[in-house]
Design a protein around this nucleic acid. Structure first.
Lengths: 116, 116
DNA sequence: CCCTGACATTGACAGTCATCAATGTAATCG
DNA sequence: CGATTACATTGATGACTGTCAATGTCAGGG
């Protein structure tokens, strides 16, 4: 459902920025808010941090459940949100699911703040 | 209630990063999440955008109510959240309240993503 | 001194969210 | 094939959030 790439089109109601409103359009704001909403939870921030800090660059769910002190379904839920926000990538190998940072996603998100 | 400056202390339960967990601590994550939570709403993003885009660098509530198509109490509520997150600055002159971007706050927030 | 205008606060309500227990699915092993 | 292991999904529940109507506050004008 790649959200971050979706931000390129900047869908606005009018063709150009409506004269009086040079600022963020409603639709564009909603898309950007989805990304920040994914970051607006302490446990999801910690998930990103753990995945990023891992030497191999990827982590399976079992590695993530314990340090957060959360149930496995809850962790799976948070990971799904991060994937749908375009921040994490999921790869299933055998019985395990490996999560890794989408390259450049954090930088691109940081860039959203500059182009407000 | 300056939140962004509060991030400097990085309050963690142990004195140093606990051996097995080089990642984000629980308390630190909660503080950072507060800032992103303030950004996790489309209308708040638009408020920031409008304030930033204004030539004078500041806007009063009456200028912000109309373009968002929201009631005045709702706009006041959103502005309060942005102020408490350390992103906006409020200055009351006479009957009007002027809101302006806290200098460097957006850049500092972008930096939070890099130091995950 | 009352009245108006600008903004904040309160209370209420509907919608969303984080969490968990229970269950489902799918791959591996014996 | 049956059992186990790793993960996802569903359903339920308590907590939080965005919004508005009503009210409060406070400065300025007549």
């Amino acid at each position: 459902m790649k959200l971050l790439p979706m931000l390129d089109q900047a869908t606005d109601e009018a063709c150009c920025t409506p004269s009086g409103v040079p600022a963020l359009g409603a639709e564009e704001a909603k898309q950007k808010a989805l990304v920040f909403k994914a970051l607006a939870d302490p446990n999801r921030l910690r998930l990103l941090s753990i995945v990023k800090a891992d030497a191999s660059g990827e982590s399976c769910v079992c590695d993530l459940t314990e340090p957060l002190d959360l149930g496995q379904p809850t962790v799976s839920h948070h990971l799904k949100i991060l994937v749908e926000a375009g921040l994490l990538h999921r790869e299933k190998r055998g019985t395990w699911a490996y999560y890794s940072l989408v390259p450049g996603a954090l930088e691109e998100t940081a860039g959203l703040l500059a182009t407000l």
